[in-house]
Every structure is written in structure tokens, then in C-alpha cells.
Design a protein around this nucleic acid. Structure first.
Lengths: 340, 340
DNA sequence: ATGAAAGCGCTAACAT
DNA sequence: ATGTTAGCGCTTTCAT
């Protein structure tokens, strides 16, 4: 059986509270002699404080909950999430916080999700790429527990990348290479990043007086499949754009795959730019030119903010992070026949 | 404030225990009428059971702890672990279990690791690729809590791949391609997979009367760096082996990198085989021929076994899984000059 | 069928 | 400086 404070107290003929305080320099002062004795026998008896009991008494768990974006299964296989989680765990370790990942979301019965979150096992939350109408966020917000939102501007204090700046930088790169017919495959437009990147795209094009025929604005949803499907649409365009700005890397890889299979070469025939920079360079041939968002840092900052709120009541403030442009092999000067 | 059983009880003029039982068909029977009333008001009041309190009362947390192999930081960036964790989370979700990942290991003070594990927050454990002398395993074993060991044969009931079968299959492939001078870069020999694969390599070579000069048995440690360094050693060998069997994929990629940089082509000049199959095919050029171990399945089975033990007292039994050979582009027939 | 009460192991205010 | 005690919110045995 696990040893308890009571066991130590009885053995030493002390009160439980004295033992408790002796072990942790508790609220009341304990004489050095006693403290020493207590610690010694605690060690000898192999005593380990019961965190469950402590949490019940203090109302704190030292645990922050992480709610990933919803997918049916294989949640942890998304490079996106993996980076974010790694950043969160790294930061949590330093702050002596535990992390509980809530992958068990059943969107057929959203109320169960909420129940899980509110059963007092986490002191605060980080929501990753939540839907705008997330019931989970709503309940957590109502409960008064602190939380931050990662990779999405709606729903609460958010930790996001400067999509607009990123899009502008990427498009400037393409324009510098001589591209004028630039298509865009959007992300999920119900997500803020999807909308912001599309809007920035349109704004840039407008500003540079570059035409955007409706057919060159293809709706995707941040998945590789949607990029692949967009490829089919793209191939029918005439004249074919010489460059495509994709709302994220997955889309870009799907597109690249579709184009390659049809004999369209990247970057010789068409330049492709992604966004997020979550994939290792070797994930595609040619390696993808992309805007890297500092996912790990953003995730770590979200965690720190939540913990600061829990521990010191400091308000959580939204932050926007600057992306970093990474030029690799998927972009090049426009093909000769593109120069009219 | 969060509502409690007491709140409901007072509102309804019932006892706490009646409310408790009404909500969960508890040990004692409650009249349908009361049960209905209780559930209705619980819903209205937004009552959520407090899992911490329940855990303290029942002594069960419905949580299994996962202890990854030790690395200083960025634990969750290892493809290895990511696959295993994903398998564990998938299986845990189905069994309504939570998963707590213990990345916060400070090997300078191993006793703190142990303390963390034994603070009653997990009902059982899965250790991933632990060291043979793992203090953490020892304490968990002593505490009597159930646990399984993943990817390592020592330390307890283990869930491992059939390394010997895998090595034999891989080497047969090389021999069929005409290779006779086959080198081996070992994994970490303090880990069972490292030893088993090396031993199987030696056994196969002996059986096929293929010479193994000491210099062609290069010690690595499962990291990409060790593969890269082994490359330098390898390049000095004369005659150079025509094939290398690497103890895992990381080593193989490091080696491939080193060779490519020196102008040695794979697979034209030298064939390379990896092991584990955790990396996406695009991770290298050419894509790596490897023995895939069913990491997700193994991890899921480990979790199920631990949970079965917790819930039904069923003994955890070691299992050995069959790997699957995946032939990709890094192996080919021996180069002409290799045929003497 | 329902209520009362003990207890899970710990914290912390209050007493001595 | 140390002991006593009342919780934290729930489960569960024992009364009624």
C-alpha cells in the first residue's frame, strides 16, 4: 500500500498537519529537528504525496488541457499538431505543469466533450485551431477557466501568425520573379487563417493591379486532398497561371503531386508557394518554398500565458507572430512562354 | 462556482448519496421518479462530476501514463514516438481512458521522475524504449502498478517487433540482389533492438558463410548523426561493401546523406536498408527500403493490455509483432565492379 | 427507496 | 512549535 501522511504521523507521534508542513515548508513553521526527522522517515517509508488528494484540497491540478482541432482519429499524426504539442510540452516542463491532451472528442455528441473539459482536471486550456462555433470553448469561457486559442483568431485570446504580412511577402517574391498570373488555393474558409490569407491575397493582387479571374481562386480546405483536387481544376485553366499561392503546405504538396502526374513541372512550368512551414524540406520534390510560422514558439507562448494567468492572474493577451519566408526549390522565374 | 452533488441535494431536499446514485445507477437503487428529477435538475444547474474527487474516493483515475524514452527536449518531435503516441491515444479514446504523457524527465535527478510517476495520477503505465536500468520502471514495478514496455524486451512485459525475422528478411533481399559484402551499422547496443539486430545480422552472415570483417560492423546509436559519422568510416573501407544494413531508418538516412555528399550513389554504388519504417517515403532520395514495424498497432496493443489489467486483472503478456518488408528505391543489384 | 456517515489523502485555518 | 479540525466532492456501506 502507498504510504500516507497519516502513516508518517503515527510512526513519529506527530500530527498529520505537522508532517505535511514539515515536508513542504507549509504555512506553519516546523522546528528544524522535527522537519529533519520527518523528511528522513518519509524517505525511508517511500512516501509519495498523493496529487489527487492534494488537488482536491487545493482546487488546483497544475495541469493544462490541450484541445486539438477536431479530427476523427489519428489526431497526433498531424505535423501541425505535433509541432504545437512539442512546444507546449517543452514550455510546460519548465513550468512544472502537466499537460493533458483531449483527443477524445466526439462531435456527434459535443456535450460530452464539454463534460470532459469541465470535470476539474485542468486548471486552464489551449484550444488548437478550433471551429468558430466551438461549443467546448463556449463552455470553458462560461466556466471562467482561463484559456488561449492557438492558430485561430476567433473564440478568445489568440496566438496567431501574421497571415497578411506573410501572404504579402510571398506574393512579392512571386512578382519579383516575374509572375503576374497567380492563382490561389484557399484554406478552410471557416477558419480565420483561411479567410485572412485569401483576403490578403485579393488585397495584394488588387494593389498590384493584377487580375484575379474567379477561376483562379480555388477553394480548398487545408488538406492535401484538396490541393490534389484543386490541381485538376488548375490544369484546365487557360492560360494557365504561372504561379500558385497555397494557403498551407499540405495543399501545396497535393497540388504539386497532381501537377507532376500530369507532366507539369515545378518550378519550370509553375511556381508553388506554401504556408506554415511545418513539413521537413524533404517532404517534396522540389522542396517547397513556404512561409514558416513559428508554431512551437507560438504554442509555448500560449502555454506560458495560460499558466501565468492561473498562477498570477495576469490577463492573457492576444499575440500575432511574424512568419519567416523560406525560399526553396518550388519557385522560379516565370517560364519563357509566360513572358508576353 | 461549479455545482456539486450537495447543491443538487439541497435544492431537491434529497441526500447526497441518493443524488449520486441517481446520476449513475449507483450501488443503491433509486426510484425512477426521483432519478428523473435529479437528472433534470443536474442538467439545468450545469452539474459536472468532479473527476478529482471521484478519483480520490475510488482510487482510480482512468488515466494511463506514458513515459517516453529519455531525451532532453523536443521529445514529441521523434517520428517514432509520434506514431506510438498516436496508436496509444486512438486506443485509449475507444476505452474511455485518458493519457498522461510524462515528458518531464530530469535524468540528473532520477528520483524526481519516480516521484512524479507514483503520485497516484495514473492507474498504469507504458514505458517507451526505456533503458535497461530504468529507475522509473523499477519503482513502478515495486509499487505494484501495472505497466507494459514498448520497443524494448527488458524491464517487464514487452511489446516488440521480431527483429531477428526482420533482419533475416532484409538480408535475404540483399543476398538475392547479389550482395555479399554487407556492412552493418548497429543501433544503441544498450537497447534490446540494437543488440538483437546486430546478433541477427551476425547469425545470418555466419549461416550464409559471408565474411564480416570487424571494420564492417560499425557501432551507431539509432541517431541520424551516428549514421552520418558511420558514413565517414564506411568510405574508407577497401573494398567498400556493396550494401549496408542499418539498425534503423535514422541511421540509414544519415549514412545516405554522408555517402551522397561524397559522390557515392545509392543504390547504384551501394544499397542501403533501414529498419522501423517510421518515416514517410519522401524523407529521402532515393526512398528507403526498410522493415516496417507496426508501431501504432504495437502501441495500441500495449495500451489495451494495460487497461485490461487495470479493469479486469488480466495478466499483461509480452507480444512479438511481425515486421513488414518494404522495398523502395535504396536497394538494387550489386554494381558491376562488385561482381568479382 | 432514501438518509446518514465514514473515509479517500491532503491542506489550511484555528487552537493550544 | 505542534495539535485539532473542518473541509475539498465524491463513493459506498450501513441504517432506517
Amino acid at each position: 500500500m502507498a504510504k500516507t501522511l497519516k502513516d508518517i504521523a503515527e510512526k513519529l507521534n506527530l500530527s498529520i498537519s505537522t508532517v505535511s508542513c514539515a515536508l513542504k515548508d507549509g504555512p506553519k513553521v516546523v522546528s528544524p529537528a522535527v522537519r529533519k526527522r520527518v523528511r528522513k522517515t518519509a524517505l525511508e517509508m517511500g512516501y509519495r504525496p498523493n496529487r489527487i488528494a492534494r488537488s482536491l484540497a487545493t482546487g488546483r491540478t497544475r495541469t493544462v488541457g490541450v484541445v486539438p482541432m477536431y479530427v476523427d482519429e489519428d489526431t497526433l499524426l498531424h505535423p501541425y499538431l505535433q509541432l504545437a504539442l512539442n512546444g507546449i510540452f517543452n514550455a510546460a516542463n519548465k513550468l512544472k505543469q502537466d499537460v493533458l491532451v483531449y483527443t477524445a472528442q466526439d462531435h456527434n455528441r459535443p456535450e460530452t466533450v464539454t463534460d470532459d473539459l469541465l470535470d476539474s482536471r485542468s486548471d486552464g486550456f489551449i484550444f488548437i485551431s478550433p471551429r468558430a462555433d466551438s461549443l467546448a470553448i463556449k463552455s470553458v469561457a462560461e466556466s471562467g477557466l482561463p484559456y488561449a486559442v492557438l492558430f485561430e483568431t476567433s473564440g478568445g485570446q489568440s496566438f496567431t501568425v501574421d497571415s497578411r504580412a506573410g501572404v504579402f511577402r510571398a506574393l512579392e517574391h512571386l512578382v519579383e520573379l516575374g509572375h503576374r498570373r497567380i492563382a490561389h488555393i484557399t484554406g478552410d474558409l471557416t477558419l480565420s487563417d483561411g479567410r485572412l490569407r485569401r483576403d490578403a491575397f485579393l488585397e495584394f493582387m488588387e494593389e498590384h493591379r493584377l487580375p484575379v479571374p474567379a477561376v483562379t481562386l480555388i477553394e480548398g480546405n487545408f488538406t492535401r486532398e484538396s490541393g490534389y483536387l484543386a490541381g485538376a481544376v488548375f490544369l484546365k485553366l487557360c492560360p494557365m497561371p504561372t504561379a500558385v499561392f497555397c494557403s498551407n503546405d499540405d495543399i501545396a504538396l497535393g497540388l504539386m503531386d497532381a501537377l507532376t502526374r500530369s507532366g507539369v513541372r515545378c518550378p519550370e512550368d509553375v511556381s508553388i508557394v506554401g504556408f506554415d512551414g511545418v513539413l521537413p524540406p524533404g517532404s517534396s520534390v522540389p522542396p517547397l518554398t513556404t512561409m514558416r510560422q513559428p508554431a512551437q514558439l507560438m504554442a509555448a507562448e500560449a502555454l506560458r500565458s495560460v499558466v501565468k494567468n492561473i498562477e498570477a492572474g495576469i490577463e492573457i493577451e492576444s499575440r500575432v507572430f511574424q512568419p519567416e519566408f523560406i525560399v526553396r526549390g518550388s519557385t522560379a522565374s516565370i517560364p519563357l512562354e509566360g513572358i508576353v
